[in-house]
Amino acid sequence: MSILIDKNTRVVVSGITGREGSFHTRQMIEYGTNVVAGVTPGKGGQVFEAGGKKVPVFNTVREAVEATQPNASMIIVPARFAVDAIYETADAGIPFMTCLTEYIPVLDMIEARAYLDAKGVRLLGPNCPGLLTPGEARIGFIPGEVAMPGPVGVVSKSGTLTYEVIDALTRLGIGQTTCVGIGGDPINGTDFIDVLKLFEADPATEHIVMIGEIGGNAEEKAAAFIKEHVTKPVTSFIAGRTAPPGRRMGHAGAIVEGKSGTAEGKIEALRAAGVPVADNPDDIAKIVAERMGK
């Protein structure tokens, strides 16, 4: 079992012929992901070949949907085209999309999110590494070789930091159900709480790892949610204890504004909700192993 994607998920890739799009789509297909279509306006009719598979390319998502019935989308197009791709995907009736693109203006995301909520469409990202169900499917960048199937659900705002944690878990022989990167933008589609709900409901997930960072209050809200609604053990890490206030630490959302969004506040909220917070990401896997009795 897993959440959001598995080997049967039918994926359409917007931006499949781009430099990044083609590189990662190829890796996804080689990992076993069922990529059924690609979209690049003006390149309809072409065929994208990877891992012995031939993937048809369409001019629009709607045409891809009519011909190949995808039920998930990955958007990997330049920022100025990404919002349009989000609307296009929602409008074509695809219930779940992952947008990897970085640098989308915040006001655009506010409007897009309102539209998606009204349509009942789930967006993961933007500016996220995507998600991986080890041994089954991958949408995005998370390197499959560091992961293995198992009982831990991972949810994170970060990309590379998550790879670290997955790698450490795998080294201790602890596999993962699904690893989800929600991204570090101030306005995103899927938040910690959404993923926590899915992991709580997923019978295969026995333990949850949540990796947050400075900025906003998603971690505090997640802590309150965990206390009330999550019965499975959660282990956490918060990045940015040494970040100076008022400076944006790479991610658009990673900023301590006044007294809000600090690592201390988040760590305190999580600990108060009974969630152990590691001081060093290298310790997360050890804490999980200990708590799982391994």
């Binding site: 705002k157 040494t242 990673a254």
Partner: peptide, 16 residues
């Protein structure tokens, strides 16, 4: 470092 989260974490662990 590559990645903002890992860059912050690298700073945090250096301090640790």
């Amino acid at each position: 470092v590559n990645g903002a989260g890992l860059a912050m974490t690298t700073m945090d662990v250096t301090k640790l």
